[in-house]
Amino acid sequence: MSHTSVASPPPLRPAHETKHIPILDYPFRALRFHLAQLDNGASNGTALWLGAQCLSLYLADNLKHRSPSSPGSTALAPDGKRPRVIELGSGIGLSALALASMGWDVIATDLPDVVSTVLSGNISRNLPQLPPHSGTVQVRVFDWTVPPDQWRWDHSCTIASSQPEKQHPAIQHGSILGPPFDLIITSDTIYSTALVTPLMRTLHALCKASLALSPEVRCPPVYLCLERRDPALVDYALSHAKDSWDFKVERIPQKKLAKAIEKTGALWDKNEWEDVEIWKLTLRS
């Protein structure tokens, strides 16, 4: 008697091994995302990076109580609203889709070229395939170099742009999301000294906006994931967050990240990801 063998799904591979693949068949928990990426050198944000992988795995392991499918889920707040997260530098959309699948409403943001070439399409392609009771993802253009007093939360396409006259594609479901936020995340965004101050100013302003609208709730934590390619730049960014922007800065223990990676069954050597760090920033005031 012959038996039909069922091919096992491909294993999770680190991002540096898959940048040549135009459409990633990406496993996340019981799901598979199909994520387009570009490796043409035009933008850092149009391909998958290791930081986004590691941050999504860590959050999946440590925020799983938010999933509507979990026993005793707390995905919905007492007022019936889902927890809300904004991501800076969403890239190809992995972390945004991961959190949406866990019951979060997500604002996924990036610069116009990233939004139009990969992010918007990946969200629109994968969002309908998420399980029932998942959260939603709204895609918006967000340029950190634009001062906070010029941001707008009532626009369906753009929070802040240096090219306001340019129309950007939007993915919207339901009313337009905005602050307050329960969580702020960003990964692979510490790569230029010139962008450190705009990034920290943006994180600070997002925390302040959340507190202003919901003062009875604690300040939303910021999870910042990076690869320590340039130690001097990383140290400068973390010191700047602490000394200039009043953030309490704590590193997530590496053993917690290792545990999250191991749970996926990924057989990654430690040297594949040992330069990845996740930092939790909490506004002191």
Rank of each mutant, 00 (worst) to 15 (best):
D182M: 07
L177T: 04
L177E: 03
H155Y: 00
I176W: 02
G174C: 13
Y191K: 01
S161W: 05
A160E: 00
S162T: 10
P164Q: 11
S192T: 02
G178L: 00
G174A: 12
H168C: 13
P179R: 00
A170H: 11
S156H: 13
H168K: 13
D182H: 05
H173Y: 14
H168P: 12
H168L: 08
P169D: 09
H173T: 13
T158A: 12
D154G: 01
S192V: 10
T193Q: 11
Y191N: 02
D154F: 03
A160Q: 04
G174P: 14
D188M: 05
S192H: 09
Q163A: 07
H173C: 14
S187K: 06
E165K: 00
G178C: 01
Y191F: 12
A194D: 12
T186S: 12
H168D: 15
H173A: 15
Q163V: 06
I159T: 04
L177G: 08
Q163C: 09
S187P: 08
E165A: 12
L195E: 02
E165R: 06
S162Q: 08
L183I: 11
Q167T: 14
I185P: 10
D182A: 06
D188R: 05
T193V: 14
I184L: 00
L177R: 02
P169Q: 09
I159F: 00
S156W: 03
S156A: 15
S192M: 02
T193M: 15
H168R: 12
T158I: 07
C157F: 07
P169R: 00
Q167P: 13
S187Y: 02
I176P: 08
F181L: 08
D188I: 07
C157S: 13
D188L: 11
I184D: 00
P180A: 03
A170G: 07
S175C: 13
G178F: 01
Q172W: 08
I176T: 05
S161C: 06
G178M: 06
T186W: 02
C157Y: 05
I176L: 13
I171L: 08
H155N: 12
L195G: 06
I185Q: 00
D154W: 01
L183N: 06
I171A: 15
S156Y: 03
A194C: 09
S175M: 13
Q167S: 10
T158V: 10
T189D: 03
K166P: 04
Q172G: 10
S175A: 11
S175Q: 14
H155K: 02
Q167N: 11
F181E: 04
D188S: 07
S156E: 15
I171R: 14
P179G: 05
H155E: 04
S162D: 06
I171K: 07
F181W: 15
P179Y: 01
Q172V: 14
I184Q: 02
Q172A: 09
S187L: 10
K166M: 10
S162I: 08
I190H: 00
P180K: 06
I159H: 02
A194L: 04
C157N: 08
